[in-house]
């Protein structure tokens, strides 16, 4: 994150219950922080909600909550994640995000400097994604009832005119692409999680994908049958949901799946399978076979898709199963994870 915004002078260092009371303290917190930093015409109204015009066409609407720990991690913070996450959920619908809501649940005692950094992260990510935060909410809960800060964002976006993205459009022989190296975000978070810290230069790849997706839709339009960002549970979870819901199967080529060398090494050491590790700045695309090469070209010409690759295809051979051809030519079923992936002993 390159954005530098000096924190305004305040007469408090930490956020207390009073800052969530709705009274003077709340106003001081919002005036000095949120409203000034994130200002735009709609937010400046400071009304209970935002009122805006819409163009003709379809709208997409999505929501997500962010509870990540730690709130600062290599390559980003919870604020950036909260913006990029909802922007990307809309992008996966084929929509370009326009307006977001932003709601904080802050644990009493949060350092104002930390809150400021989160806000700056939000501003930066919103600028990059070209979205406006138009309404919001701030609540403070007692110490021990939260984990520093939780954020919810909801967003609205205009659907790309050529977008028709639904699971039911996934067909046998469709090709599966990934826009970039997997597992980077999850490993970056693990590297700073208490008890598991290890030295690495791995940074989260959190970023908005809306511009990349719009370019893909400009070129490939209705040949894009499905988009998905494999966040929690990783690529394996998303693909298992896909085969469960469509009744089709997926063949995956292990050798084709991009993983940064340092991430792969960390996964080896930690006993984790990259296929199950969370991602942020990457997405899966299922496209018609005849459009696969042009989709790959579009992705590779985009800053978010330099390592894009065709990693598999949809098949009728093994319904409801994701089968991976290993690097040495063996086959195994890639299952839905049971819960959180737990590191192995040896």
């Amino acid at each position: 994150m390159q954005l530098q915004c000096p924190m305004p002078k305040l007469d408090f260092d930490i956020i207390t219950m009073g800052h969530g009371s709705g009274g003077l303290l709340t106003n001081r917190l919002l005036d000095s922080g949120v409203f000034d930093l994130l200002k735009n015409d709609l937010l400046n109204e400071r009304h209970d909600g935002a009122i805006f015009d819409t163009q003709a066409g379809k709208l997409a609407f999505s929501t997500d909550s962010y509870v990540i720990s730690p709130i600062f991690f290599p390559g980003g913070n919870i604020g950036e994640l909260a913006i990029n996450g909802t922007v990307n959920d809309l992008a996966m619908c084929g929509a370009r995000a326009r307006y977001l809501s932003l709601a904080f649940i802050i644990e009493e005692g949060l350092n104002m400097q930390e809150f400021w950094e989160v806000l700056v992260g939000i501003k930066f990510a919103a600028q990059q994604a070209d979205v406006h935060i138009v309404t919001g909410d701030t609540k403070v809960v007692e110490r021990g009832k939260g984990d520093k800060i939780f954020i919810n964002t909801s967003g609205m976006g205009m659907l790309h005119p050529k977008a028709d993205i639904r699971k039911s459009r996934v067909q046998p022989d469709d090709v599966l692409l990934i826009s970039g190296p997997i597992a980077t975000h999850g490993v970056a978070i693990l590297s700073v999680r208490q008890g598991l810290e290890f030295e690495s230069s791995i940074e989260s790849d959190t970023t908005n994908l809306n511009h990349t997706v719009m370019r893909l839709l400009d070129t490939c339009g209705q040949d894009v049958h499905l988009l998905h960002d494999p966040t929690r549970g990783g690529v394996a979870t998303v693909l298992n949901e896909l085969v469960r819901d469509t009744g089709l199967g997926i063949d995956l080529q292990e050798a084709a799946i991009p993983v940064l060398e340092e991430v792969a090494s960390a996964c080896e050491l930690l006993g984790l399978d990259p296929l199950y590790v969370a991602n942020e700045g990457v997405f899966l695309a299922v496209v018609a076979a005849e459009a696969a090469e042009s989709a790959l070209d579009v992705l590779k010409s985009d800053a978010n898709g330099l390592h894009a690759a065709i990693i598999g295809n949809i098949t009728t051979q093994h319904p409801r199963q994701v089968v991976l051809r290993s690097k040495i030519g063996g086959r195994r079923v890639v299952n839905m994870p049971i819960g959180e992936q737990l590191p192995r002993i040896c």
Partner: peptide, 17 residues
């Protein structure tokens, strides 16, 4: 003997080969 070997045999699809 070792579970790590079992894991690798399965993960790499060696058993079927």
């Amino acid at each position: 003997v070792c579970g790590g070997q079992t894991h690798s045999l399965v993960k790499n699809g060696i058993l079927q080969m």
